[in-house]
């Protein structure tokens, strides 16, 4: 079992290396000179050239990439081109805000989405089912920034219930989390509903019913547990998607997280910050998926026996 976990953990490493190489190449190929962007448009060309030399930007691409990887493995992700501060501290300091946002959004999506999906499945073809299907369609179709702005206009401005911007208190996270949760919630509602419907039609459910088990016992003990596997998969994958989507939400709600940091860094071709923040997010996504894989084993005894035996 432990061997399985370690093996899965080690598999994350080639993924990270692949991502870093891809990003490094993209930053290299896109136009724009970081030295020029730092010094400004009116700076003398000779100064820009001197800064390029100083930053090592004229060295060979592979030399720079290898240097970067070697340093990164030692924990040194370089200094931000713009502030000159170590990138790792900058990214880590911004991380709590993004993490809070992503986790809260996921919790909202799970706590609201799954029950609605269950109800929808149990009360199939009733009005509740129709309403939940339509609302999940609407939620998945709305662009995040639009939904965010609409929520700000209604709940922050007109109704004055929440603050507009920033990340100081928990009240600041309500609207952004709801915005971010919307699409995942929609997916979870549909997913839960369809897997539950599939499971409900199984023989063992009919057996349980005929044995005289109560409704809720059937739903929770027998049906949901078997339906959980695909749902948990969706949660795992969507967490990584949400981390990416948080960029736009952070921008709209002015939350100082990794997403905002990434957007600014891309605009300024601040390669060290872009690389570090993306790698960070990728690592997080990888770890969440690993956690999901481990969770599988608790949910499904068939998988557990496969791995524990070895």
């Amino acid at each position: 079992m432990i061997k399985y976990i370690i093996k899965r953990f080690l598999m994350i490493i080639p993924v990270i290396i692949g991502i870093s190489f891809l990003l490094f190449s993209v930053m290299e190929l896109t136009p724009g000179d970081p030295a020029r962007l730092i010094l400004g448009e009116t700076a003398a060309q000779s100064d820009v050239d001197a800064l390029r030399e100083e930053m090592g930007l004229n060295d060979n691409f592979f030399v720079r990439y290898v240097n970067y990887v070697v340093n990164a493995l030692k924990g040194d992700f370089g200094n931000s081109y713009i502030t000159g501060l170590p990138v790792s501290t900058e990214v880590i300091s911004k991380f709590p805000a993004t993490f809070k946002l992503a986790v809260t959004a996921m919790l909202i999506a799970v706590i609201i989405g799954i029950p609605i999906g269950i109800i929808s499945a149990v009360k199939q073809y009733t009005i509740i089912d129709t309403v939940s299907l339509i609302s999940s369609l609407i939620m998945t179709s709305m662009p995040g920034f639009w939904l965010g702005l609409m929520l700000i206009l209604v709940f922050a401005l007109k109704l004055d219930l929440f603050p507009v911007t920033g990340g100081d208190t928990w009240m600041h996270y309500v609207l952004p989390s709801v915005t971010l949760a919307a699409s995942t919630m929609a997916i979870l509602i549909r997913m839960t509903r369809s897997t539950m419907l599939e499971v409900i039609r199984q023989d063992y459910i009919r057996t349980a019913k005929s044995k005289g088990s109560g409704e809720s016992r059937i739903i929770f003990k027998h049906a949901l547990r078997n339906a959980l596997l695909p749902i948990v998969t969706v949660i795992g994958i969507n967490f990584a998607v949400q981390l990416g989507g948080s960029m736009i939400i952070e921008n709209v709600f002015a939350i100082p997280g990794v997403g905002s940091l990434m957007i600014e860094a891309v605009k300024m071709k601040n390669t060290p910050v872009v690389l570090a923040s993306v790698i960070f997010v990728a690592l997080l996504g990888g770890l969440v998926n690993l956690a999901v894989d481990i969770l599988y084993m608790y949910i499904d005894p068939r998988l557990r026996s496969q791995y524990v035996k070895g």
């Binding site: 702005l149 700000i152 911007t165 920033g166 921008n251 709209v252 002015a254 100082p256 600014e264």
Partner: peptide, 18 residues
């Protein structure tokens, strides 16, 4: 000095008095 990158959000914040 509050950092707000989105122009619409900034305007709403001004309207609200934030």
């Amino acid at each position: 000095y509050k950092i707000i990158g989105d122009a619409s959000t900034a305007l709403i914040a001004l309207e609200k008095g934030e």
